Amino acid sequence: RRKSKRKPPPKKKMTGTLETQFTCPFCNHEKSCDVKMDRARNTGVISCTVCLEEFQTPITYLSEPVDVYSDWIDACE
């Protein structure tokens, strides 16, 4: 008699959501930077609500707010 092989359980999909508020690289306030994605103009704007620092970068249809933040961090270095 042959043993029946069980199929492995399906893999769980990533359910965690990406951050939309970030720590400002200038004033170091946590969750003080908000990202606005202007898909019509293909630009992402991130601004700090505390020190009013602002950064704008081009985006694509695949871009997420975390991509705008990482572009800002890269531009600071």
Score class of each variant (00 low, 15 high):
residue 1 R to A: 06
residue 1 R to L: 13
residue 2 R to D: 10
residue 3 K to E: 15
residue 3 K to Y: 08
residue 3 K to N: 15
residue 3 K to D: 08
residue 4 S to M: 14
residue 4 S to I: 08
residue 5 K to Q: 15
residue 5 K to R: 09
residue 5 K to S: 10
residue 5 K to G: 12
residue 5 K to E: 15
residue 5 K to A: 05
residue 6 R to L: 08
residue 6 R to E: 15
residue 6 R to A: 13
residue 6 R to H: 09
residue 6 R to P: 15
residue 6 R to Q: 11
residue 6 R to F: 06
residue 7 K to Y: 01
residue 8 P to R: 05
residue 8 P to I: 12
residue 8 P to A: 14
residue 8 P to S: 14
residue 9 P to D: 14
residue 9 P to Q: 15
residue 9 P to E: 09
residue 10 P to I: 09
residue 10 P to C: 03
residue 11 K to M: 08
residue 11 K to N: 15
residue 11 K to D: 09
residue 11 K to R: 07
residue 11 K to F: 07
residue 12 K to Y: 03
residue 12 K to N: 10
residue 13 K to P: 09
residue 13 K to E: 07
residue 13 K to G: 07
residue 13 K to N: 12
residue 13 K to L: 06
residue 13 K to Q: 08
residue 13 K to H: 08
residue 14 M to Y: 07
residue 14 M to P: 10
residue 15 T to E: 05
residue 15 T to R: 06
residue 15 T to A: 11
residue 16 G to A: 11
residue 16 G to H: 07
residue 17 T to S: 11
residue 17 T to W: 03
residue 18 L to C: 12
residue 18 L to W: 05
residue 18 L to G: 13
residue 19 E to C: 05
residue 19 E to Q: 12
residue 20 T to A: 14
residue 20 T to E: 08
residue 21 Q to C: 09
residue 21 Q to W: 15
residue 21 Q to Y: 01
residue 22 F to M: 14
residue 23 T to A: 11
residue 23 T to K: 14
residue 23 T to H: 15
residue 25 P to D: 02
residue 25 P to K: 03
residue 25 P to H: 03
residue 25 P to G: 02
residue 25 P to V: 07
residue 25 P to F: 09
residue 26 F to P: 00
residue 27 C to H: 00
residue 27 C to R: 00
residue 28 N to A: 13
residue 28 N to Y: 06
residue 28 N to V: 03
residue 28 N to T: 14
residue 28 N to H: 12
residue 28 N to L: 04
residue 29 H to Y: 04
residue 30 E to L: 07
residue 30 E to G: 13
residue 31 K to C: 03
residue 31 K to Q: 11
residue 32 S to I: 10
residue 32 S to N: 08
residue 32 S to H: 08
residue 32 S to F: 07
residue 33 C to V: 13
residue 33 C to D: 03
residue 33 C to L: 08
residue 33 C to Q: 02
residue 33 C to P: 05
residue 33 C to S: 06
residue 34 D to Q: 08
residue 34 D to S: 11
residue 35 V to F: 06
residue 35 V to C: 01
residue 35 V to S: 04
residue 35 V to H: 00
residue 35 V to Y: 03
residue 36 K to E: 14
residue 37 M to R: 02
residue 37 M to W: 02
residue 37 M to A: 02
residue 38 D to P: 00
residue 38 D to Y: 05
residue 38 D to F: 04
residue 39 R to I: 14
residue 39 R to T: 14
residue 40 A to I: 08
residue 41 R to T: 14
residue 42 N to P: 01
residue 42 N to G: 11
residue 43 T to H: 04
residue 43 T to K: 15
residue 45 V to A: 09
residue 46 I to T: 04
residue 46 I to V: 10
residue 46 I to G: 04
residue 47 S to Q: 11
residue 47 S to G: 11
residue 47 S to V: 12
residue 48 C to H: 00
residue 48 C to S: 01
residue 48 C to Y: 00
residue 48 C to A: 00
residue 49 T to K: 15
residue 50 V to W: 14
residue 50 V to A: 14
residue 51 C to L: 00
residue 51 C to E: 00
residue 51 C to R: 00
residue 51 C to G: 00
residue 53 E to I: 05
residue 53 E to A: 08
residue 53 E to W: 02
residue 53 E to K: 10
residue 55 F to H: 08
residue 55 F to K: 02
residue 55 F to T: 02
residue 55 F to N: 04
residue 56 Q to V: 12
residue 57 T to S: 15
residue 57 T to P: 03
residue 57 T to W: 05
residue 58 P to T: 06
residue 58 P to H: 14
residue 58 P to V: 11
residue 59 I to K: 01
residue 59 I to H: 01
residue 59 I to C: 06
residue 59 I to E: 03
residue 59 I to Y: 01
residue 59 I to D: 04
residue 59 I to N: 00
residue 60 T to N: 13
residue 61 Y to K: 15
residue 62 L to W: 15
residue 62 L to P: 06
residue 63 S to H: 13
residue 64 E to G: 09
residue 64 E to L: 13
residue 64 E to S: 11
residue 64 E to H: 12
residue 65 P to Q: 09
residue 65 P to S: 07
residue 65 P to L: 04
residue 65 P to H: 06
residue 65 P to E: 07
residue 65 P to R: 08
residue 66 V to E: 15
residue 66 V to Q: 08
residue 66 V to H: 09
residue 67 D to L: 02
residue 67 D to Q: 15
residue 67 D to H: 06
residue 68 V to Q: 04
residue 68 V to P: 01
residue 69 Y to S: 02
residue 70 S to I: 03
residue 71 D to A: 11
residue 72 W to H: 02
residue 72 W to Y: 04
residue 73 I to H: 08
residue 73 I to K: 15
residue 73 I to D: 00
residue 73 I to P: 01
residue 73 I to R: 14
residue 74 D to T: 13
residue 75 A to G: 11
residue 75 A to C: 10
residue 76 C to P: 04
residue 76 C to S: 08
residue 76 C to N: 06
residue 76 C to H: 05
residue 77 E to G: 15
